[in-house]
Amino acid sequence: MTALPILIVWLGAWGVNSWLSRFDTRLTRTLVPIVFGTTILLLWEMIVRIYSVPSVILPAPSQIGASFMANLPVLWTDFVQTIIKGALTGWIIGALAAIVTAIAIDRSTFLRRGLLPIGNFVAALPIVGIAPILVMWFGFDWQSKAAVVVVMVFFPILVNMVAGLAATEAMQRDLMATWAAPYWQSLWKLRMPAAMPFLFNGLKITTTLALIGAIVAEFFGSPTRGMGFRISTAVGRLDLPLVWAEILAAAIAGSLFYGIVALIEKKVTFWHPSQRT
């Protein structure tokens, strides 16, 4: 009998959504997922309250929100330590290194044939495992986290960038040649712009990888701040609302990171078919 209100809310929200989705306008297309998300949160809250689930197993969204607001300063230091210092630094270094390497190996067919299969292979490996080694080498602070991130993001970006540099057509390259464009000019004016959609694809994939690398590396040793550190200590104290607040912060950071890169992509590759509306 206690399940009745839960069922009613679920069916009601589903009915609203089926009704909304019939219109298929821009407004309903944003409304439907919002309704769905709110329903999930509502059901979560109701299930926790009605069945009095202990907060050690699953805290209610309201508890998580309260913990998030109460721990804002802590979350901010963790954010700076893990996301800004660890993930972002590593991501930028790794991306730059991958782009430079891609341009360098692009000049030699031999190197490209040799590195691409290896790059593809390495991109599928569990690279996070390298975290304990790098923590040993670079110490507990953010440098080791940045190093893990560099290794994790390097190969996906490299593979995408090399594919992007090869994406020009022979006709376009011939045109550059008839204009007597030297290598650098044709690289800068033709092939770099043509590679941008591929590059941004790689950059977007690796935003998540960067966060994962930075957080997981903290499980192997960290100063007394940082998201991974906070998660593992809060789990030890069974302070699950704080853990979830930390995950919420990581989720927000991840979405923002991805969103900013997607926004830059929109500005840079405005000419690409996938960006036209």
Partner: peptide
Amino acid sequence: ASQSIPILAIAPM
């Protein structure tokens, strides 16, 4: 959207 969230971080929890 969930693709942009570091799900692995939940693993230990």
